[in-house]
Design a protein around this nucleic acid. Sequence first.
DNA 1: CTTGAAAGATGGGGTGC
DNA 2: GCACCCCATCTTTCAAG
Lengths: 162, 162
Amino acid sequence: MSDTRLDAADLRILAAIQAEGRITKLALAQRVGLSPTPCWNRLKRLEDAGILTGYRARLKVRAIAPVTEFLVQVTLEHHRQSDFDRFERAMRATPAVTCCWAVGGGVDYMLKIVSHSIDAYQRLLDGWLEQEIGIARYYTYVVTRTVKEEVDAPVELLAAKE
Amino acid sequence: MSDTRLDAADLRILAAIQAEGRITKLALAQRVGLSPTPCWNRLKRLEDAGILTGYRARLKVRAIAPVTEFLVQVTLEHHRQSDFDRFERAMRATPAVTCCWAVGGGVDYMLKIVSHSIDAYQRLLDGWLEQEIGIARYYTYVVTRTVKEEVDAPVELLAAKE
DNA sequence: CTTGAAAGATGGGGTGC
DNA sequence: GCACCCCATCTTTCAAG
């Protein structure tokens, strides 16, 4: 682990490379105001420390196929550890489930599901009920428009001391 | 726009570069079974067509600062176009709001908010109520655990003909 | 689709402040 | 810690076959 404290230059590196994942190390150094070598060292340190966890391309899913998204509230029948485990295993094993958050506030989980159609979505949910993975009830919200969906964390906001 | 139909090689490129954003174009070509130049041409075509929309580094937000996430249901007071516009403008202008989905199913919006603390979250919401951006009521779900949060779209699932 | 080649980036080395 | 040099190797980009 070593030292994981981040200084202002680290935060600038993170913000820059988060926004532009394929930036060259030279351009990154200029962007953050360091010369290439220390910038490269910091980058490697951030990667080794597991703070930079990988690089992704972002793509317009809708170009691949028509897509409908759903947000789903789920409440389980029972609340033993084994019930949570079984449900979460099923979520992890289902590619259509892109997000699964355990939440407090009246329901147990919130899911984000991506599907070709309402039909395909309903078949998925029906399958889960038949497989008895412990769902007591669920409530579906169809996403009608994505106003905002940042993959980027607001580095500056979070770095600001409260 | 031109031709936006994607063949199997395009989909392999998308899946590969989505998972490994900084892969070299040579390695990408080998990965998808093309020689470098046609692979490079396809990549450029995918970028130009707006299907590949950018490259990001992924980072562990919790390394920057302690973070609490919230999922919030919002219902507006009125439902004129101007009410939606005003609310969505506020969401876009707020960095702490990482996601904002307009939904059908009993409420108007679902938000994902990232914050230092419950306190900071509450101040944000109180501010919105004071500013009168049209919120009639909201309901907060605290994220207690992130079971799954894929930034990657399931290319294979979506490409599969239904 | 393949080859090739020039321009540029990478990942090191090293020195000195 | 930092900047500034060097260098061999790989990558990117595009022209031409």
